[in-house]
Amino acid sequence: MTASGGPAVRLVTGTVLDADGAPVAGASVHLADGPVPLPDIAALTGPDGRFSFPVGADGVYTVACRTADGRGARAAVAVGPAGAPPVELRPG
């Protein structure tokens, strides 16, 4: 789900975790901002709490999540030619 029609897809990946480090299922995750226009869609985490978004350009992206009980978290991640480190979101 990317605006890019080209092959240079990089992934912003991560996991939503609770205070004990356990994965959170059913959290809504989206890219809140970034260096290029972004599809306005949101992912729902599965039982493993994981998510992934393709992005078409290098730069800094902000990933935001909201759990079903209303807790949220945001994190910035830098995407470069080698990709990006996994993001951990821990809603407070």
Binding site: A32, D33, G34, P35, V36, P37, L38, D40, A57, D58, G59, V60, T62
Partner: peptide, 13 residues
């Protein structure tokens, strides 16, 4: 593309 935006700034929806 980016020529329209200049240096990569943060986008906010």
């Amino acid at each position: 593309g980016e020529a329209s935006f200049g240096p990569p700034d943060m986008l906010e929806t």
